[in-house]
Nucleic acid binder design. Structure first.
Lengths: 147, 147
DNA sequence: TATTGTTATACTCTATAACTATA
DNA sequence: TATAGTTATAGAGTATAACAATA
């Protein structure tokens, strides 16, 4: 393959392009470090949120995480097959499904939660601690998650 | 649907999750503003880069934009069918494909380039100009695009 | 024999709509 | 009749491998 260098100009400083590049990079690093556990990023987010909100309902969880109900069904199904999540039907509304972690699911969170959120995160980059904090703040503001 | 509020905890401050949210948001806004032209974000990036580097080769373009060759073939094919890009086979290496914009492609860039990079970008957010600049800097550093 | 690009195939992610069960 | 969730289907995005043409 030719090694001619070419120039992407303003594209390399456009927010849309950079968000895409950064997200793909984060995704790749997730699988490098956590692929061995067989969980995908979205599955971990769901697992974590059930841990934070035991007894949460299927639909509320989907709404909070901006996941379509149909997709949530498949995600939870996988977590259930893996023995990490327990589904149950409450007597007060037998259409609903409420979710909680199995003992194994809680153990998974205790053991690997630090890899997602802690100082030993799966993300590798050259940002200082204060730069990372600022990046988090700016992304939250960009996405309308904070004033 | 129940309106019970639930809490995502540290997830809402984790870089991986926020990059995903921000990227989905940017993607949605792209289609809100530019969907009418029938181009996807990746197609615009390719169009722009050919504009910046007329005569660039298929493979070099793929390598620069981190797009697999097989995917680049389909992307360029769509741009060609739309009449924006011209493919040609150079005599000095008849395996290669070199790309350039048609007059219509150049017109598209002149007309809509500002929507991607200019002050009238398709991206809507509450960041100040200096915050946006800092976000660009941090994302470039995160992705290893700058020292 | 190596390189450039194309085609074929498949898998993930996500969106929509039809469907079942319950309220 | 409305709501909660499930299933079926389809489309975009991307990865791999087999392939054709040229070097």
């Amino acid at each position: 393959m030719s090694t001619n260098r070419i120039d992407i100009g303003e594209l390399g400083h456009s927010l849309g392009y950079l968000l895409r590049i950064a997200q793909v990079r984060a995704y790749d690093q997730f699988f490098d470090v956590l692929g061995e556990y067989g969980l995908r990023p979205g599955e971990f987010s769901v697992l974590w949120t059930i841990h934070q909100n035991p007894g949460a309902r299927h639909g509320v969880l989907a709404e909070t995480l901006c996941i379509k109900l149909a997709h949530m069904t498949k995600t939870v199904r996988r977590l259930e097959e893996r023995g990490l999540v327990v589904r149950s039907i409450p007597d007060e509304d037998r259409r609903a499904v409420v979710l909680s972690l199995s003992a194994e699911g809680e153990a998974f969170i205790s053991e690997h939660g630090q890899l997602f959120f802690g100082s030993a995160t799966y993300l590798r980059h050259d940002l200082s601690a204060s730069e990372e904090k600022e990046l988090v703040r700016l992304l939250r503001r960009f996405s309308g998650l904070s004033g």
